[in-house]
Structures are given as C-alpha cells and as structure tokens.
C-alpha cells in the first residue's frame, strides 16, 4: 500500500481540471475515463491511486494520511484550519470570498460603522475570524447552500460567500461590499507523506511548478 501515491480530489470540475494539469506532468489514470459510480481509481503501472471525495472532505482524508496529496480550494483550507502542507497554488478554480448585502442596503450603509451584524454563510470560522479582526461583533448563521436567499427572506442582512462571475449575486439583488480573500485551488500534502515519500513528492511539486509558471493563468 505504502508504495502507492494516493490523491484525494473533489468530485466534479476541479477533479477534471486537476487531472488535466497532472496529465501534463505524466500523471494519468486511464481507469477514470469510464468512471461509473466508482470512487477509487487506480493506475497500477505507475502506482497511483485517485479518490473522488466531497471537496470539504479532501483536507480530512489528507490530514489523516488516507491520501498523500489533495487538491482543494483555499476557501476550504481557510475554513478548516487543518495541519497540512500546502506548497503549491495551482491557479485554477479562481474565485473570491466576499461580504455581500442587498443593493438597497448598500446605498445607505457604511461598513466602517458596523458594530454588530448578522451574516449567513457556509464559512462560519472564516467569517468570525475576519470580523473579529476588524472589531465587529458578528452573529453567524450557518447554511449549507443557496446563501443568496438569506437576505431576501430576512434570515440575515448580509452574507459571506464565494463569487466567480458575480452573476448569481446580481440576479438576487446583492452587491459585494468587501473581499475577504482571493481563492484558487491548492495542492495539499500530508505531513508524514512529505517526509516518507519525499523524493516522489518533491519531483511532483517541482514538475507542477514548472508548467504552472510557464502555462497561462486560468481564471473564471
């Protein structure tokens, strides 16, 4: 088992982007072309294994060492604060984590004057930390999806959420107030794996670094 290099990748778009990137440094998995309902894919010849997991679970698999390497958004890393290495910004999956509120509220609102506010978000830890640093007391309402709905129905006046194009927010009458962080996908590595498989992993990082530096920056 331990001579395999195991990857935890978030199901969906990021998994595809990651595999496209990995293919450029010779890391492939033909078994994945016909995924069906499988969650684990192997390339026995090159001793590689790929697991498809929920993006929020990627850091957990990697922290426990069930996977050596993972790809995950910086938003998830900020929220979970796990004990991991994150040596590489893969520069895809670009978006921003922002504070937003309804357009009508924005017109008369001054963020510098906030003292206590109510915020709906999928990111309670990031939200609390961000506002605590500004000296603003925040009451966080944790939601699991469709965050834009919260201000429309009066659950919270403001939200903290990811935006890429801003389309969803605009359509729901919300405008951005502040950017908390710029988000891209990161390569994360289990601490023990970096030590016990350092030759393979250092090479992987260096190879990826080469093509990321030379390749075009993907955004959107």
């Amino acid at each position: 088992m331990s001579d395999y290099l195991t990857f935890a990748l978030p199901k969906g778009r990021i998994m595809q982007d990651s595999m496209d990137l990995f293919a450029r440094i010779g890391i492939t998995c033909p078994e994945m072309d016909d995924p069906g309902r499988k969650l684990v894919f192997e390339n026995r010849a090159d001793k590689l294994r790929f697991m498809a997991v929920r993006s929020q679970d990627v850091p957990t698999y990697v922290e426990h060492g069930c996977a050596d390497i993972g790809v995950v958004g910086k938003d998830t890393l900020l929220e979970q604060d796990k004990d991991l290495y994150e040596p590489l910004d893969l520069q895809f999956g670009y978006c921003r984590l922002v504070v937003a509120e309804p357009k009508e509220l924005r017109q008369e609102d001054d963020p510098a004057g906030w003292s206590n506010i109510r915020v709906a978000t999928k990111y309670p830890n990031v939200t609390e930390k961000y506002f605590a640093a500004k000296g603003v007391q925040v009451e966080v309402i944790k939601l699991y999806g469709s965050i834009e709905l919260a201000p429309l129905v009066g659950l919270a006046e403001r939200i903290v959420d990811l935006v890429s194009t801003g389309g969803t927010m605009r359509e729901n009458g919300l405008v951005e107030v502040e950017t908390i962080a710029e988000i891209t996908s990161r390569l994360i590595i289990n601490r023990a794996s970096l030590k016990t498989k350092h030759r393979r992993i250092i090479r992987l990082i260096e190879d990826l670094e080469q093509i990321i530096e030379h390749g075009p920056r993907i955004s959107g």
Binding site: C66, A192, T196
Partner: peptide, 11 residues
C-alpha cells in the same frame, strides 16, 4: 525531530 512511519499519516 519527528518520527514518521511509511504509510501512516501522523508522526
């Protein structure tokens, strides 16, 4: 220093 075993995710 920390000791790591191959295939085990923590020190």
């Amino acid at each position: 220093f920390q000791g790591f075993l191959s295939g085990f995710g923590q020190a």
